[in-house]
């Protein structure tokens, strides 16, 4: 029963929480750059604007593909907050990204196609760590179930999996498409590839992407929180604090780094995955 309630709360509240996080992101970014910045409600107004604009479509299938992307992100988030299998959550998330790549590839725009290619490279860079996170959590808890992992007593799992946690936070920048790893889309007004995957999207199609991002960000923060849970109330508070701290860290990284080439991203992501997750995996196996 609790699982269903949590799932429904996620479905209803996640866009609002994601929107507020996005608003805070823009405000903090502005303050870091010495600017006043927009209101924290600005992303909400942006979304309303996008939905009100004309539906100008290069290819009608693009909207349906982006809608599928949103649906799969929502499904993966719902599965996670439902306490389902973590592997299923990650597979649904990867499937959603495939829809985005397809949506970007349906147009003949070179910038959109380049964005699609780079999105695939981003997936190649981050997916090993995502899958290893599931493996790590299994080795530490003996189950892939999110609900059982969250209710597991003893010390929070982060104490057993610090390497996995660092690796996951590292690839979070890729997942959230933030600088220095915003190679598939321009998070800020860099002009080299216009807006990458979203170049040919406007109005409702772009709104789908925005909503999906909010759902995805809340779910990713949920995964961060999962590392800190051990079934007690204080661990829930710790999970919220750690998730917010990680979100702030992502904003800080975004503002203090310039975009890197995809080769550098690939090497760095795999390097961190192999070193952090690999060493942690080795230690876990030794202790078993």
């Amino acid at each position: 029963m609790m699982r269903i309630v949590l799932c429904v709360v996620y479905l209803i509240a996640a866009p609002f929480v994601g929107c507020l996080l996005d608003g805070c992101d823009r405000k903090i970014t502005a303050r870091m750059q010495g600017r006043q910045g927009p209101s924290v409600y600005q992303p909400w107004w942006d979304l309303q604007k996008l939905l009100a604009k004309e539906r100008l479509m290069v290819n009608p299938s693009q909207f349906y593909l982006m809608a599928s992307y949103t649906v799969f992100v929502v499904i993966s988030g719902a599965l996670f907050f439902c306490g389902s299998d973590l592997l299923l959550v990650f597979f649904a998330l990867t499937t959603s990204e495939m829809f985005m790549v397809l949506a970007a590839s349906t147009t003949s725009s070179p910038y959109s196609s380049m964005g699609a290619n780079r999105e695939l490279i981003q997936m190649t860079s981050s997916e090993p760590m995502v899958l290893l996170t599931a493996v790590g959590l299994y080795l530490a808890t003996g189950t892939f179930s999110v609900a059982e992992t969250a209710a597991m007593g003893g010390l929070p799992i982060i104490c057993k999996l610090p390497g996995f946690f660092i690796g996951f936070v590292f690839i979070l920048t890729i997942k959230m498409r933030k600088s220095p790893f915003d190679v598939s889309t321009s998070h800020h007004a860099h002009q080299e590839m216009v807006k990458g995957v979203t170049t040919e999207m406007s109005g409702a199609t772009l709104a789908c992407e925005t909503i999906a991002n909010w759902y995805e960000h809340v779910m990713l923060m949920g995964i961060i929180g999962l590392f800190c849970l051990n079934g007690t109330v204080w661990s829930m508070l710790l999970a919220i604090v750690v998730a917010l701290a990680v979100y702030f860290l992502e904003v800080l990284i975004d503002n203090t780094s310039a975009r890197v080439k995809w080769q550098t991203m690939f090497k760095l992501a795999w390097g961190v995955t192999i070193v952090c997750a690999g060493v942690n995996l080795f230690v876990l196996q030794m202790l078993r």
Binding site: R35, P38, A189, H190, Q191, K195, T198, M201
Partner: peptide, 13 residues
């Protein structure tokens, strides 16, 4: 940007 104005490089946006 305090007015919500973003300088985007994309005419579709």
């Amino acid at each position: 940007e305090r007015f919500g104005i973003i300088n985007t490089g994309d005419p579709m946006h």
